[in-house]
Design a binder for these strands. Structure first.
Length: 423
RNA sequence: GGAGAAAUGGCAGAGUGGUCGAAUGCGGCAGUCUUGAAAACUGUUGAGGGUCACACCUCCGGGGGUUCGAAUCCCUCUUUCUCCGCCA
């Protein structure tokens, strides 16, 4: 959520920045400022009335104590009018505050200066690529065929048990999956991230905190009886552990990693491009979350990018890094780098990590602050990134590492798997 | 799931209708003393809004109510603890 206090002073900055997302925010921001003004004015009047009424109450207390009952009762009469107007002003103030909140909820984060202008994924900027695309043998197969051939993943079984998009991993497929999770967590913890295991169901307040609610309700599975949401990413429970916190500047940065399954309804996406592991309702992901001092957050973002690069280098997968353009940037992000692995047999790029700086956008909703060296309380910056999302990494490995003899296991994973080839 | 008790500042813990934003202790910070440190002593020490700065307003688990006035009384929700039942 954007900060009204800042919009008040730098409206033009917001108009300009949001234009990069293709949003003409001028009139909305004017409305924001109008409602904010109305809210503050009601607040001011309310404060005045309350101050008067408080002082009357004190006076009445004193009068009763000194036995001047008559006078006290007279004063009481006077407060009834105050009470009435304070009630009205309070309602007015709350109504304006609610209106303001709703308006702010509709506005996405403002993009960083580095974000290129653009309307969709075609305008994303490739900033880096690395790794060799292997020359596959004649008759190379896409991963869903490979999964079938080597009995690694059973999609039909998942359909039977649950529905489409809920694959069953089996035998060496399951083992490879587990190996990847452990390997990722090891990489992350040795880079200094603290490992967490967090709840897979979250309450409404958490969904609001990280920005999944109220806008993207349809993306999450909702458990109606208990009013809980299945997490679409561990970013939600991990970041929300710090909701409402007032940290000390010395506590920063806070760095977390966690493995969780992720659940996404993905309503409306069907067809060939979601085949196999390309898009699922349930998938595994190892996530990184950082809470940073505002002065350090972009340095930290670069550090996360380097960290993910390091993992992909070790896995020896061909990948590229995109800087998302304004039109493709997520609602809550100020700057995002997407990592894509080249899926050889499908001849397409698959997103396997997304690393973002949210600046204060989430922190403002989360009320996640820290006491800076100057003694002032400030909103922290939050960042997160996948390291990594499992299914597409698995798809990339299966497709890129297929040979006549079978699927080779990347060297770095062999100790985790206990085998070096699937055949 | 049943019965009971509780929720107060960083922590512990007073406070049952008015002078309580809240005693006291610990912790934190500053100072005195000391070559330095410890101890001791003195002072200071919650958050948010608002203001140039004051004033002023709000917050004692969340929400609602009674009252001129609520940490204190009532309703409700949540959480924690104790006992019983069930259970990976």
């Amino acid at each position: 959520m954007l900060q009204v206090t800042d919009i008040r002073e730098n409206k033009d900055k917001y108009v300009k920045a949001l234009a990069k997302r293709g949003i003409d925010a001028n009139s909305v921001l004017d409305e924001v400022l109008k409602v904010d003004e109305a809210r503050r004015s009601a607040q001011g009047q309310l404060d005045e009335v309350l101050a008067k009424s408080n002082s009357y109450s004190k006076e009445i207390g004193k009068l009763f104590k000194s036995g001047e009952v008559q006078k006290a009762n007279e004063l009481k009469e006077e407060t009834t009018q105050l009470k009435e107007s304070s009630k009205q002003l309070n309602e007015q103030m709350l109504a304006e505050a609610e209106k303001l909140q709703q308006l702010l909820y509709t506005l996405p984060n403002i993009p960083n200066d580095l974000v290129p202008a653009g309307t969709d994924e075609d305008d994303n900027e490739e900033i880096f690529s690395e790794g060799e695309v292997p020359k596959l043998m004649e008759g190379a197969l896409p991963h869903w065929e490979l999964a079938k051939k080597y009995d690694l993943i059973d999609f039909e079984l998942g359909v039977k048990v649950t529905g489409a998009g809920f694959p069953v991993y089996k035998g060496k497929g399951a083992r490879l999956q587990r190996a990847l999770i452990t390997y990722f967590l090891d990489k992350n913890t040795s880079a200094g991230y603290t490992e967490y295991q967090v709840p897979l169901l979250v309450n409404e307040a958490s969904g609001l905190g990280t920005g999944q609610l109220p806008d993207k309700e349809g993306q999450m599975y909702h458990v109606g009886v208990d009013d809980l949401y299945l997490i679409p990413t561990s970013e939600v429970p991990v970041t929300n552990m710090f909701r409402g916190n007032l940290l000390n500047h010395a506590d920063l940065p806070i760095t977390c990693t966690g493995y969780t399954p992720c659940f996404r309804r993905e309503a409306g996406s069907y067809g060939a491009h979601v085949r196999g592991l390309n898009r699922l309702h349930q998938f595994d992901k190892v996530e990184l979350v950082r809470i940073e001092h505002p002065d350090k957050s972009y340095e930290a973002l670069d550090g996360m990018v380097e960290h993910v690069k390091d993992i992909l280098r070790e896995l020896k997968l061909p990948y590229r890094i995109l800087r998302l353009c304004g039109g493709d940037l997520g609602f809550t992000a100020a700057l995002t780098y997407d990592f894509e692995v080249f899926s050889t047999a499908q001849d397409r790029w698959l997103e396997i990590s997304s690393v973002s700086n949210f600046e204060t956008f989430q922190a403002n909703r989360l009320k996640l602050r820290f006491k800076d060296t100057d003694g002032k309380n400030k909103l922290a910056h939050t960042l997160n990134g996948s390291a990594l999302a499992l299914p597409r990494v698995l798809a990339g490995i299966l497709e890129n590492y297929q040979t006549e003899e079978g699927i080779k296991i990347p060297e770095v994973l062999v100790p985790y798997c206990g085998f070096d080839i699937i055949n």
